[in-house]
Design a protein around this nucleic acid. Structure first.
Lengths: 340, 340
DNA sequence: TTGAAAGCGCTAACAA
DNA sequence: TTGTTAGCGCTTTCAA
């Protein structure tokens, strides 16, 4: 009763009086193997409790069937839905996902890339850390032809595909909407402008102002970490402005909500005195009063598209790779910005 | 310039005119190797761009340094923080995390366990699906001595450690608090009672009633999926009750918040006419008006403890394993339940 | 302190 | 259609 010892293809071969190579073929959908031989092999394998040894198989095939995911933080609703989408697709198509958080640190991002490299991932999906400066740390992967997909916070890199939404257009839409609602002094709460997502939204904000003939005033742009704390501080800054603004476009919902709470506590009426639009369509946006207008960010879809694009590239290396994939966003208008 | 070909220990051995075995030893902290030989090896490895082949090394050592995580869904704040905690610890201690979602389905859970098994994980952390009936599907792991940690939604299994909070006590605390605030007809919104987390909370709810001399009325227990939808339906059921309740203890914040919104829309004043306590301390609990009293669930800590307990067991198999680890919860009283 | 050599379990080229 | 054989790159006895 060697129930403890692992069953190998050799055991099956001996049992059936055939060669290990035939067993190996029978276990796959190898062409050129007799049907009933294959049946016998599969049956014996099942009966004997055979489990294929991935280590040996990986060693030969030089593939791990594992995809790495590097993200800044896994503590937001948005990121959780992205990962959920990735996992769903990866699972369906026979890949495993290994995940690493950079805690928004460039240094940790470099370490994560190296760990992933050593784990022999077949491909990588990355959303950049807050302060990632260059992309040299990805070179060792690219040199080994390991494909990389950037999503959300991207950096154009030749040969890599990026999955994004049109952040500039979204910023434009949000700001344009505020203007249409009669706002003329609109604050923008922005994140780190060296990240595309935030600089593009700022760009859209500016363009919407220009289009409406409103001069851009740098004093109305507040830069912070987009955290709850950041939103509260932004409210204080807004209250301290000599000329009171009448609208806010925040680059995420967390800070928009915190900001609204503070403003309400100071007696400002939303949206009458201050109309607000956030970004992401987090669950909190439907809970705050008044409900927050926001830009729907298709996180789940982004995860699915990123994973399926990557896996297609892995399974069909010849397939032509796209440079950038833009997903559809949507402005969701709720009570926090309706003045007309 | 074979910069494309991978460098192996044989290449290093040839370069230094020593044997591959010595190189292998030099690369580890193997005892009985001369200091400067080791130095030479490490230097050559660095210079030649050596990367250890995990596949080969796994094949020999029969370990993958990978831990599996199986969860119902990765779309809640709570679960995201748990995973974040796990990843942090795993990363620090040199393990990778591979994640799989069951989508709350028992069938998918079985499939996930099998996939994980085939991926040769060294250990597993699991929170059970909504309808998981038995634990037979874990047997193949246990037979191979692969340790399993259950967390949050657990099932006692001999030989496995569970990480939980005292859900009974938490349910008691929440209900007791409502009673102290003058509530006497308290509704409990519960999840699937075959999951420990929900049945224990119900148990605590009952005990608090009994302790206060209030008879338990099954008609006041609403069972649902604890989703937003569920919370809204619960509100309708509450409004339809012949004798209007004056308090609600919900097993999560999502449904508590949805329920409050509905009740408010129907003109019920919170907390005066209906005091509410939720569970989890999700971000929405601080946004809803009035702010939701809730039970703080230490998700991040739970993830850290689960991972470090598992890794300790992996690194020191002899270490004595605990059966159950109970983390501290905390009732957080906010405006939604203060009537005195 | 180092080297020789066997083998982990699988795959694939080549032969039959 | 099946078998033979030679590794993939590493670790680990055993011997020197």
């Amino acid at each position: 009763m060697p129930s403890d010892k692992e069953i190998t293809i050799y055991d099956i071969a001996k049992e059936l009086n055939i060669s290990p190579a035939t067993v190996s073929r029978g276990l796959k959908d190898h062409p050129g193997i007799r049907k009933d031989t294959k049946r016998k092999i599969l049956e014996a394998a099942r009966k004997m409790g055979y489990q294929q040894n991935t280590f040996a198989s990986n060693l030969r095939s030089k593939r791990s069937n594992t995809i790495g995911v590097i993200i800044p933080r896994l503590n937001s609703y948005f990121m959780a839905t992205v990962i959920a989408g990735m996992e769903k697709v990866a699972n369906q198509r026979g890949y495993n996902l290994i995940i690493s958080q950079t805690q928004e640190s460039f240094k940790k991002e470099i370490a994560s890339v190296n760990t992933m490299f050593n784990s022999r991932i077949d491909g990588l999906m990355v959303s950049l850390a807050y302060d990632t400066g260059d992309t040299k740390h990805f070179d060792l992967l690219l040199k080994r032809k390991i494909p990389i997909i950037f999503f959300d916070r991207v950096l154009t890199h030749p040969g890599c595909t990026s999955i994004v939404i049109d952040n500039r257009q979204a910023g434009f839409d949000a700001t344009h909407h505020l203007i249409q609602q009669g706002c003329s002094r609109i604050v923008h709460i922005a994140g780190n402008l060296s990240r595309n997502v935030y600089s593009d939204r700022l760009e859209g904000y500016k363009q919407a102002l220009v289009a409406a003939g409103i001069p851009f005033d740098p004093a109305l742009v507040i830069n912070n970490s987009l955290s709850e704390q950041g939103g509260m501080e932004a409210a204080q800054q807004i209250l301290a402005m000599p000329l009171r603004p009448d609208g806010i476009f925040s680059s995420n919902d967390t800070s928009a909500v915190a900001c609204i709470s503070q403003l309400k506590a100071s007696g400002i009426r939303i949206p009458q005195e201050m109309a607000v639009v956030g970004f992401n369509n987090d669950p909190i946006s439907k809970v705050i009063e008044p409900n927050l207008s926001t830009v729907h960010y298709p996180g789940h879809e982004m995860g699915e598209v990123a994973a399926s694009t990557l896996i297609t590239k892995l399974d069909q290396p010849a397939a032509h790779a796209l440079n950038t994939i833009v997903l559809r966003h949507e402005l969701i208008v709720r009570a926090s910005s309706i003045r007309k």
